[in-house]
Design a protein around this nucleic acid. Structure first.
Length: 720
DNA sequence: GTACTCGTCATTTTT
DNA sequence: TGACGAGTAC
């Protein structure tokens, strides 16, 4: 291979980014502009030209999937062993760091990682122990408080408590931290905070890593949190360079801590002189890009970018105004049929929506039409309860002091250890300042009954004995049976299908083992711990097996990074998209607009937008008006599809049928769609009319205040 | 211990 | 409307 073979098909901006001399840079990469390609080619280029060895590269991504993809692409370009490179998520890299230096970080060798579920149950457990009212202090709030503090780099005694409640939360944080430390577990936020503190405090170590990682590359930079940015700064030190790739227009995760403002801060603090914009889009046709550009142009806080394509305008964007959510779904089904008839593969068609609840109507319509579909979201593999139970046994083998794991399975499958007994153990453990396991061991009783605490202790000890010397997959296999989990689910009528997942867990262990043996590292001496870490850090796929040709249903968030031949964006109504809750959030509307932008730019060739005038939501009929975002797309790009007169949307039988217009007693006439003014509620749009004369009623969707039903006789409505 | 009822709640989600 | 958690009755 010639030195620069992989540079050949890059466009000028991509090439400039890839071959940039050693300096910090910000690559503003629009949707579909070849972002991943630039990132991976940059790494390959740096190594190929001898500017850095693989060991000098640190690349951060946001999902494990992205990390994997990156490694695959790099090794596809260069015949190198990727081991030396550090490519992974923030959490994955922090884990690696803490494993390698667990002693300095004050952690046990085999520390375990708590996922959010585990964290919450650990908090609940703690609060029960401390006898704290969980009505007054909801465990969810407590976990939010703790994670929030950690995200700001604050330990419990750094937290300022302004009042009684604040003090309570702070104390809970402190107690929680003690509990974690005692049990040798860390939560997600702790991974980041602990490794930050480690590097910050330990100068030789910090200098070591700063000397090592000459080049730091960050993917999806707009999704970094404030603390992750601080972490990067610490890692980079004074001399290293950061190559940040991101798109402020695609920042849709502010609600979980992403801070797109990091981009501006980065420009300033790293004295960035090279900002390269990748604006050529290789995905969508012209009309789609124009719509996206026009829409996002309504946002004010932007670094500024305009996507363009070398391809033609393509088809117009289709807009459908449905009378109801049911009608909307029916329309989508009809169009999918037509598309598939034209030869579009179902898997290249996506149905996007703002919130998961919207999928139901769509699923129903698809199901009735016998169109195969697949819904993304929901439980992931390692989050399933049967898998969690099995993992808890694994965790106990690795470390019986893991109280969270112990509580999970001490009586599952049921072995006659009731809540009262568990409380006694907890009480004893608290009094003696020991872990539950130690307390359980001390607890006397007949062990030969096969029941009760002694039997449980013996079971775990026997498991430890019997699994030593076995490989990971064999260990998993063994304890699935020894624990009684398999027998339990086999005996159950309703949960027998969970066995499949348990079997899948053995497969996952086998697969993991194969990979792990190939890449055994100094940081991960123990396959069992490595597997448990893998399970916590990477929750696995949302659905077990699919791969079948099926239409793809998902939220807009879940669609980020994907592309489809045809995309349907449904539910484009005020209150849904933009979501009503976003109105109270800082930057809320702009984030919603970015969400819409992400949705639009998923489409390659065909894009459908639709909204429904009525929609069943939370068991109640809601009447909506078209999303403001639709008005922000130039009409010339849209082709409106008229609603065929399907069945008039169903009103309950006891109500007057709805009409398009009505007249008040005084003879004033109103029609659906008309803008009106109300002295108290302000401006709004009529969405439905009912009755006439003295009975005349209208439903008005007000800009502020939502939908109201008003009797014309009393309401002082005036046309605008 | 389990099966049932009742009440509550309802963006978006990765690690 | 419907999913889930807590609490209650057997």
């Amino acid at each position: 291979m010639t030195p620069n073979a992989f540079l050949e098909h890059l466009n000028p901006e991509q090439l400039a980014a890839v071959t940039l001399p050693r300096q910090s840079a910000l690559i503003l990469a629009g949707a579909g502009s070849g972002k991943t390609r630039v990132l991976t080619t940059r790494i390959a280029y740096l190594i190929q030209t001898g500017q850095v060895s693989p060991a000098g590269v640190l690349a951060v991504t946001f999902t494990n999937k992205a990390a994997k993809e990156m490694l695959t692409r790099i090794t596809g370009m260069l015949p190198i062993n990727p081991r030396g490179m550090w490519v992974g998520t923030f959490h994955g890299l922090c884990n690696r760091l803490l494993r390698a230096h667990h002693r300095e970080a004050n952690l046990p060798v085999l520390f375990q990682i708590l996922d959010s579920q585990d964290q919450l149950s650990a908090i609940k457990r703690l609060m029960k122990l401390l006898n704290i009212d969980d009505e007054k202090y909801p465990p969810k709030q407590v976990s939010y408080f703790i994670n929030n503090a950690k995200e700001q780099g604050l330990r419990a005694n750094d937290v300022e408590a302004l009042d009684e409640t604040g003090m309570r939360y702070r104390d809970l944080y402190a107690a929680y931290e003690q509990q974690c430390q005692r049990e040798g577990v860390v939560d997600f936020a702790e991974l980041l905070l602990r490794s930050y503190e480690l590097l910050n405090r330990n100068e030789p170590l910090r200098l070591h890593y700063q000397a090592r990682f000459k080049y730091i590359l960050v993917d999806e930079f707009q999704d970094t949190s404030r603390f992750q940015y601080e972490w990067l700064k610490l890692m980079a030190g004074k001399d290293n360079v950061v190559f940040a790739v991101g798109d402020d227009d695609q920042s849709i995760y502010a609600f979980r801590g992403a801070h797109a403002g990091n981009m501006q801060t980065f420009l300033r603090e790293f004295a960035v002189t090279s900002v390269i914009k990748l604006e050529q889009n290789y995905r969508s046709q012209g009309n789609i890009l124009d719509a996206a550009n026009m829409l996002i142009g309504h946002n004010s806080e932007r670094l500024g970018k305009n996507l363009w394509t070398a391809e033609g305008a393509g088809e117009p964007i289709r807009l459908y105004a449905a009378s109801s959510d049911f009608d909307e779904a029916q329309f989508i089904v009809d169009e999918i049929r037509a598309l598939v008839g034209e030869g579009v593969a179902p898997s290249h068609i996506a149905l996007l929506y703002r919130s998961n609840a919207q999928s139901r109507v769509l699923e129903h319509a698809l199901f009735s039409a016998s169109i195969p579909y697949r819904v993304y979201g929901g439980l992931r593999f390692f989050e399933r309860q049967e898998v969690k139970h099995a993992l808890a046994y694994l965790r106990l083998i690795a470390n019986p002091e893991d109280d969270t794991a112990l509580l999970r399975v001490i009586n599952f499958p049921a072995r006659g250890i009731g809540a009262r007994t568990v409380e006694q153990i907890q009480e004893a453990a608290r009094e003696q300042g020991v872990t539950l396991w130690q307390a359980a061991c001390k607890r006397g009783g007949k062990a030969d009954t096969g029941k009760g605490v002694p039997a449980f202790v013996m079971l775990i000890e026997a498991m430890r004995r019997e699994t030593t010397g076995l490989n990971l997959a064999e260990q998993v296999e063994h304890l699935l049976h020894a624990s009684g989990l398999v027998a339990h689910y086999q005996a159950s009528k309703t949960e027998a299908d969970r066995i499949e997942n348990l079997e899948e867990l053995v497969n996952a262990a086998t697969a993991f083992l194969n990979e792990y043996d190939g890449e055994r590292t100094e940081e991960m001496p123990d396959a069992l711990t490595a597997f448990l870490t893998h399970a916590a850090l990477e929750a696995g796929d949302n659905q077990a097996a699919s791969g079948m040709e099926a239409v793809q249903l998902m939220t807009v968030h879940a669609a980020k990074g994907l592309e489809f031949h045809s995309v349907f964006i449904s539910g484009l109504e005020e209150g849904l998209c933009p979501h009503e809750n976003s109105m109270f959030e800082h930057d809320g509307l702009e984030e919603e607009r970015r969400l819409m932008y992400v949705a639009i730019t998923r489409a390659r060739r065909r894009l459908y937008l639709s909204f429904a005038q009525s929609r069943m939501l939370h068991g109640q009929m809601r009447y909506g008006i078209a999303s403001r975002f639709l008005n922000e797309i130039p009409e010339k790009l849209l082709k409106t599809i008229n609603a065929p007169q399907r069945a008039v949307d169903a009103s309950p039988a006891w109500e007057e049928p709805r009409t398009q217009r009505t007249e008040s007693e005084s003879g004033q006439s109103f029609r659906v769609g008309q803008n009106v003014m109300h002295p108290k509620f302000g401006n709004g749009v009529i969405v439905h009319c009912r009755g006439r004369g003295a009975d005349a009623e209208v439903e008005v969707n007000f800009r502020q205040g939502g939908t109201k039903r008003l009797a014309l006789q009393y309401a002082k409505l005036s046309p605008v």
